[in-house]
Design a protein around this nucleic acid. Structure first.
Lengths: 354, 354
DNA sequence: TTTAGCACTCACCTTGGCTGAGTGCTAACC
DNA sequence: GGTTAGCACTCAGCCAAGGTGAGTGCTAAA
């Protein structure tokens, strides 16, 4: 059943007042702030109705009302006004993003920090892959007679290297042969396709080279694995203590511990959000993770291109300023997408990746 | 003035009882635990003396005594017994360390996490350089006609790379020339020695190559800079809330914020400890940083060899189990030093660095 | 349907008394 | 002289009682 216009106005006023004060709000206060020219008694009637319908609740009989998750949900879906960021804020975000145009990992991490600083809530960020990554190319560089550097490049243009030292001597021609072998046998393969059989065949062709093939290939596998198992960056966990709902140390600690557990966070929150479009708000019990049942999460995903996506999110009390947080988050996410989307490069400063 | 043997015994009993219970300890309790066959009245006299001399204090007149920083200091210097780790604990540490034999950065970070998990206090870890790092070698790998990978190796065997894309085409011979130029002009130089003049001279020799020299060299400079400005890894900050002294949210938050500020932590704590030998304990006001004045820090430094050193440390309330923490920390530090010291490699698994 | 009025509820604060752990002091003891 | 027993004293912590005020629900009138 649809709510009347006035009921919506009351609900909205309750949510907004509670968001800013964290105090239950009573009929008298609403009379002034809700902008309805009715008495507190009328508002009391409305409040009673809203409570009955499950949008509001009372911590105890003689207290004001606070929104329930259902109330927040209605607010977020219908009542909330899109927040516009101030010029100062957009400037700040843009500047920070462009300053950090370095390796993918660092930009992501920095974006998380920025969001946390901007919203005063703990934030997290990660990049993930929608598709399987393959190897594009191997290079081996001889350093001295018994060490060499292996350089692996993936089809996502990520380049990683590793120094290998060997107990035996190695010559330039030997290394050349190895390079050719690696490039013919393993290029274009995904992690799963790098089977032991394939390696055995290549080893055989390499002849006497001390299992060098498998050394380099297992390094390449590490690289692929690392890229496919995206890691989260959490920042600003200390902001948890800023908010009165986490005066309860037990609650605060549970949340902090959850946030510091990369795996739980990635799997229960971040990864599922990768495939969602745009911004998403999860209120209290809507969260899957038990630890977040009385906490809200605002998420924004963005496209990095090349089959990669990212998520950036903020965690806080259900009494969160959803409008502001969502606006800031979306702006940052858009900024990131643009940053990665600009395939065309300015001539003087070439694109770079690690 | 030296304390009598009995006074020391009393002090020690006070410290140890307070460490485990966080409650002020009274004369009656001490009568049983201190192992002196004297009455509580006698102990009261001793307590009064110790209080007068500044080793103990009373939160209020009718409460038991708690140790002052001076008291802890004496305890740490003279009274504390070396803790031995259990076999189980050493096994755990060894296993974790060897599992993570990857890049330097990751090992360091992992060591911090481990210490935090082991001690239940927040921990931090960093690696630093006692000397200036130089470039050992450049390699340029052509990827396609308008992009190449630059690989830079330092004299500490760290290898980093970066992908460059160019607006113009590039040939293999051109790249060869560039490589030779880079290797003759910049190898063996420290960060400071990579002057603009040097770059200009090399650019001149390179002729028409679009300022490629300065692109690659500025990447090399980034690498050197990054290696010389060691970054800290902090872990387990949520453990702060475990301890009753941080029920006071204000205190907890101050400490958390301090720990999350990389710069402050590095400069005021970690870097100064780099040049100290072995383990070090800083009690409350002995700390330089204002934020740590009522917090204790246990630090251990270790030698990575090759002019590099590391510090690993733990932060907690002054009522910290110094003996246990110091033992664990030292064990981990030793383990790290050994790990990095083993220049001789097992034949099958070569040493690797990023 | 709205409003005014009123009795009622209940968290929160303050106050005061009680308790018990722990002290310092003194006088007796070895 | 150092040690001990005894005793009066202090004070945080706890509990119960009472007061306050914000806010409610209900009723009856507008």
């Amino acid at each position: 059943m649809e709510l009347t216009e006035r009921k919506k106005k009351v609900l909205r006023a309750v949510v907004e007042s509670y968001i800013s004060t964290a105090e239950p709000v009573g009929s008298k206060a609403l009379m002034e702030t809700a902008g309805l020219n009715v008495s507190s008694a009328t508002i009391r009637n409305e409040l009673a109705d809203l409570t009955e319908e499950g949008y509001l609740e009372q911590p105890h009989t003689s207290a004001g009302r606070i929104p329930t998750p259902k109330g927040y949900r209605l607010y977020v879906n219908e009542l909330m006004e899109e927040q516009r960021l101030s010029l100062e804020e957009t400037r700040q975000i843009n500047e920070a993003l462009h300053l950090k145009m370095q390796e993918l990992d660092k930009v992501i991490n920095e974006a998380g920090r920025m969001v946390s600083a901007l919203t005063n809530y703990p934030a997290f960020a990660l990049a993930g892959n929608a598709r399987r990554i393959t190897i594009r190319r191997f290079d081996l560089i001889l350093v001295d007679t018994n060490s060499f550097i292996a350089v692996v490049m993936t089809d996502t243009n990520v380049v990683k290297n590793k120094l290998f030292r060997l107990p035996a001597e190695l010559s330039e021609p030997q290394l050349q042969l190895l390079t050719t072998l690696l490039n013919t046998a393993f290029v274009g393969k995904t992690l799963d396709q790098l089977t032991p059989e394939l390696m055995r065949v290549a080893e055989h062709a390499a002849g006497s080279s001390y299992g060098l093939i498998s050394l380099v290939v297992s390094f390449a596998m590490e690289v692929l694995d690392g890229l496919e198992h995206s890691s989260v960056y959490t920042s600003g966990t200390s902001h948890i203590l800023d908010h009165p709902e986490y005066q309860d140390l037990d609650k605060a600690q549970k949340l902090m511990t959850y946030l510091s557990e990369e795996k739980a966070l990635t799997e229960s929150l971040a990864i599922p959000a990768l495939n969602e479009e745009g911004a998403k708000i999860l209120i209290g019990p809507e969260n899957v993770a038990e630890e977040l049942k009385d906490t809200s999460v605002v998420l924004a995903s963005y496209d990095i291109g090349d089959g990669m996506k990212g998520v950036i999110g903020v965690v806080g009390p259900t009494r969160m300023d959803y409008a502001k947080v969502a606006a800031k988050l979306s702006y940052v996410a858009d900024g990131l997408a643009k940053l990665f989307g600009q395939t065309e490069l300015p001539p003087a400063k070439p694109d770079k990746e690690e």
